[in-house]
Amino acid sequence: MAVISRGFTGRPRESQPDLPPGQYLTKDFPVLSAGPTPAIDTADWSFVIKTETGKDASWNWEEFNALPKEDVTTDIHCVTRWSKLGTQWRGVSLDTLFENVESSYDYVMVHSYGGYTTNLPLDEILDGQAWIATEFEGEPLTPDHGGPARMLVPHLYFWKSAKWVRGITMQRDDNPGFWEQNGYHTNGDPWREERYW
């Protein structure tokens, strides 16, 4: 009996090559948060990188905005399964912020106003992979989306892109942040579907 096969036809037409597994496309920008939106006056805002050497790098709002900024167009992927393609951001590269930071530690904890934290390996936020964003779609970042400034680490699930950032602390071990303590993956690569431990 002849065996009839359709053969290998490649990716099905209905698939979305830009969508990681388990994600759906949204045109909205859902607002997710583990707490109330903090009211942050830029006059009081600061961003601090703390290391084990005791030499902190810090910027107030004026100093931060005097740093070179980059325009970033990128897809973003939330672990709650929505993805948004082609979003436009403007912010300061973490490479710029870490230029004069010396540390022997390989991990960071990102801290936000309001108490949120998320952990990352240092090599996931350098080399053009992460920014502190102050603008979204050409406008100053609104408080509900993390304004005045938020992390942007678009190659990882979006809980890593902490809203309302106030600083980064270098850490020797990969201690878990707010969601990572309770089931969410320490790394969070959407293409590997690293949602949970």
């Binding site: 607002v31 948060s33 583990a34 707490g35 109330p36």
Partner: peptide, 11 residues
């Protein structure tokens, strides 16, 4: 209860 999040944060 903040439920618009990857989990439920109870404050």
């Amino acid at each position: 209860v903040y439920d618009a999040a990857p989990g439920w944060a109870v404050r």
